[in-house]
Design a protein around this nucleic acid. Sequence first.
DNA 1: GTGGTCTAGACCACC
DNA 2: GTGGTCTAGACCACA
Lengths: 120, 120, 120, 120
Amino acid sequence: MEFNNNKPIYLQIADYVFDKILSGEWTAGERIPSVRELGANLQVNPNTVVRTFDFLQGESIIFNKRGIGYFVAEEALQRIVKLNRAKFFSSQLPSMFKTMNALGISCTEILTQYEDFIKQ
Amino acid sequence: MEFNNNKPIYLQIADYVFDKILSGEWTAGERIPSVRELGANLQVNPNTVVRTFDFLQGESIIFNKRGIGYFVAEEALQRIVKLNRAKFFSSQLPSMFKTMNALGISCTEILTQYEDFIKQ
Amino acid sequence: MEFNNNKPIYLQIADYVFDKILSGEWTAGERIPSVRELGANLQVNPNTVVRTFDFLQGESIIFNKRGIGYFVAEEALQRIVKLNRAKFFSSQLPSMFKTMNALGISCTEILTQYEDFIKQ
Amino acid sequence: MEFNNNKPIYLQIADYVFDKILSGEWTAGERIPSVRELGANLQVNPNTVVRTFDFLQGESIIFNKRGIGYFVAEEALQRIVKLNRAKFFSSQLPSMFKTMNALGISCTEILTQYEDFIKQ
DNA sequence: GTGGTCTAGACCACC
DNA sequence: GTGGTCTAGACCACA
């Protein structure tokens, strides 16, 4: 996996987990890979994965059974959607509108870009 | 001036300079405040302003006359717009599209939000 | 390490890094000493080393892995040679020719000196 | 006059004076332009010219008659040549040889460049 | 552990 | 006065 330099790796791993759950690959109640396993898989220090799991557990998206591993929470899917939608509408979108305004970028430009993005 | 904790202060000062130039308050060839002056003005350590000016000079937005001060470059305005547009289209927009996709947010939803934003 | 007063220390440290890479002591992909380590080693404030590394990263001679350290870039060697050659032919050489001209120093005189230099 | 950023302006003005004397335009015993005159002429702060003249007087290349102005010293020409030759052979040349060595630049390359330089 | 940022204060060359 | 550099020491996010 390749990591973006603008965002902490542990959050990018969280996004990776989100993808797995949103896509249905990992379902509620299912055990997810261990810290070491995922670390080796993504070529990342296990400590970094620990941090991701800490974060996800704090958001009640995964939970821990001591000595066994981490599991996808029941409400994981809804929580992820909720979490991301909230962030999207409260922070990502307004900041985008602001820079659009400042740079004189029109909505039609965005729509064109979006169509290009979909086609890929 | 109040600073956001998510972004280095020296880059926020760069944004401040961008604003001044984009708004036409500081024009090409004009001298801008000295490191010490701006530092005192924004309640920031002069060294932090030095760092901002280093960055802006690297981007050819300001230039230096030794012993005199910093001046707005001729092409400053265009460079700023170009810089910001590049960042917008290469990083901000794609990341937005990705989360839109993941969360099933449609373009029409965005447009509605945009109209609300404009009205404010 | 002893530093020359005519040139900023952080650039002299850059030259030190250049030497290490040109001599093959540090090879592409290899991790280089940390800011603190090199600072202690060269008896220089770590911040000064930070500045060197900033410069070298800007020139794409080293790159950074967050939380891990700095590494020699793949193309480092070529870039260093290119950088130094550019500086030599665009600035050092013409200024030498100019003073040769002004002082009436001939090429043969230079060649003699060069042979002496080689012998040492 | 255009100034190079690598060298203090006051020393570049000194080079300008050297040129005038070496070319015979200003001869021994002759009065040279006043600080204000030269400052206006070269678009430089008069204080900077003062510094140049200080330096030149220290090197006994010009001398001062109070209330009248600065004059070219008798031995000016020889001193300039001596000064520049000394600097050339003791510092400029060795440093050039060093970088030639480090970058693998041969003498023939230099000679070719020199011929190009002469033709201009 | 790593680098990134910031402050405070100092000294310097230069204009 | 200006910027350029350096030190010392601090706090932080990240791996």
